[in-house]
C-alpha cells in the first residue's frame, strides 16, 4: 500500500499517491498561499509545489498560516 507520513501521521492512498505535492495539497483542500511545505526535511518553495513528485513513504511536514498582524 502506498502511503505518506503527513505531519507525523501515516496516511494510506489505496487509489495511488497524488502525483505531486501540489496535487496532495489540493486533495487535502489546502490553499497553497497558506502553507510552508517540507518533504523529507527539505523546504519546497510554493513555486515548486507542482514540479515536486511524491514517492511512497516520504515524510511531509505542512505548516499552515492564517492572516492578521
Amino acid at each position: 500500500m502506498k502511503s505518506l507520513k503527513i505531519n507525523g501521521e501515516s496516511r494510506d492512498f489505496p487509489e495511488g499517491l497524488p502525483e505531486t505535492l501540489s496535487a496532495l495539497l489540493d486533495l487535502l483542500n489546502i490553499n497553497h498561499a497558506t502553507v510552508v511545505a517540507e518533504v523529507d526535511e527539505k523546504i519546497i518553495k510554493r513555486i515548486q509545489f507542482s514540479s515536486t513528485p511524491l514517492k511512497s513513504d516520504q515524510s511531509i511536514e505542512l505548516v499552515r498560516f492564517v492572516g492578521g498582524g
Binding site: A33, T34, V35, V36, I43, K45, R46, F65, G67, G69
Partner: peptide, 18 residues
C-alpha cells in the same frame, strides 16, 4: 515575521527557512 497577509507570511517563512 510581523506581516498582515497570509501569503506574505508564507513566502517569508519559506524564504528564511530555505
Amino acid at each position: 515575521e510581523c506581516f498582515d497577509k497570509v501569503d506574505q507570511k508564507q513566502w517569508m517563512a519559506e524564504t528564511v527557512l530555505s
